[in-house]
Amino acid sequence: MAIRVLVVDDSSFFRRRVSEILNRDPLLTVVDTAANGQEAVEKARLLRPDVITMDIEMPVMDGISAVRAIMKATPTPVLMFSSLTHDGARATLDALDAGAMDFLPKRFEDIARSKEEAILLLQQRVKAISRRRAVAAPVSRSSTIGAASAAARVRPTLASTPAGRGFAAATPVVAEPVVERRSLPRRSGKHYQLLAIGTSTGGPVALQKVLTRLPANFPHPIVLIQHMPGTFTSAFAARLDGLCQIRVKEAEDGDQLRPGHAYLAPGGKQMLFEGRAGNARLRVIDGNDKVNYKPCVDITFASAAKIYGGNVLAVVLTGMGADGREGARLLKEQGASIWAQDEESCVVYGMPQAVAKAGIATESLPLSLIGDAINNEIGG
């Protein structure tokens, strides 16, 4: 049965364009369109589509308000279309907080090197998020901030994506069902010097849930690799910094790694390490344009293996494709610990599945446990 899609945008041209692209795939069918958020809420209730594509700026009701209303009344996977600007980034992050599952730039030339690649990517994204039913409206960002602010926080002073880069494009494979683990894994007693987390589709919300569990006195530096365009990563780092007890910043070339600080790889760049463990610095470079992802989890993980050896806890969260598998393999060969998010809690079980199926992951954990499991393992 075809995946039923509701297309929402105030531009009749864009509605028609998206509808034509989706209808080209025999597994997708556009059941209707809406010109504003209020229409989207009403048609979501009447038509019960499998997926909704949603613009942000619209008359009558904007896309963020529409996502909130839909998640409250008829939870449905939503793919947002966003402009690649700082304001567009902030609005997109608000939409993800409201319950949207994923986003793509509204200008198709920003997401692919060719028209056909852009068409395939949009079709793949819609199919990927259709596999995950939205189940409830999330906690609002304001209440999350309030909870984070209520905790005592001692915070020390902290000293454009190329076309097609930074967006995972591989189709996820269907995995065997798994039973959700409901207890923390036994502490291994390993010595660590670095926490490294890689993710893609669904990552912004997943990272927020994990990082807000870490205390301000977390004993090691943290590096974050999220597939995201360059105009988004600074806004995303600032948002995480406001929510978390640890410090979070967009990584810069030459940053010295400090305990209790998380460094988000800039979109459109690659993040590496130089120096020695315990006194390492970050290198942020343009990297090879032939690499599919900028930033790339494999590249950062591989660099960590050279500098930190086995003293790394690497976690692979939700995302399309297999980025992170080969880097995790190199870390595992050095004796590092590799964890993967489990299937049931992923938006897309692609990257974690690639690590788990290769026999690299030692733990497969639900998202709700990962932050506490990190604290238990590392002893923050």
Rank of each mutant, 00 (worst) to 15 (best):
M228Q: 03
V135C: 11
K115W: 11
I21P: 05
I378T: 02
V7F: 03
S65Q: 05
A340F: 00
V78R: 04
R283H: 03
A91E: 05
A95D: 07
L79H: 12
G327S: 03
L367N: 06
G359L: 04
D298H: 11
Y192G: 05
P219Q: 15
L184I: 12
E344K: 14
L240S: 12
R187G: 08
G164V: 02
E274F: 04
A340P: 00
A358M: 01
G189K: 09
A137W: 01
L272F: 03
A314K: 10
K332T: 12
G164T: 06
G99E: 08
A34D: 08
S12F: 01
S160F: 09
A40S: 15
R45N: 14
A304P: 10
L122K: 07
E343L: 02
D62H: 12
A336F: 07
M1N: 15
A159H: 00
V312E: 01
E57P: 02
A89V: 07
M80S: 03
A152N: 05
G88P: 04
G287A: 10
R247K: 01
Y192P: 02
V51M: 11
M320P: 02
A305Y: 05
A137M: 10
C296A: 15
I64C: 00
T53E: 04
L317H: 07
S160E: 14
E57T: 14
A152K: 06
R181Q: 09
Q245N: 14
L6R: 10
H261P: 08
I338A: 11
Q193D: 08
V30Q: 10
P204C: 07
A2D: 00
V154Q: 01
Y263N: 09
G324C: 05
G88V: 06
N311D: 10
A237E: 04
A251I: 02
A322L: 09
R247Q: 05
F301V: 08
A34K: 12
L104G: 06
L46W: 06
K43I: 10
A118P: 01
D97E: 08
L84P: 02
L22A: 02
A237K: 01
F13R: 00
R4W: 08
A336V: 13
Q123Y: 11
V355A: 08
A169D: 07
Q353R: 13
L122P: 04
D110A: 14
V179T: 00
I374V: 13
T29N: 09
G310L: 08
N279D: 15
F81L: 15
L195T: 11
G267A: 03
P185N: 05
D253L: 01
T362L: 05
I307R: 12
E42A: 14
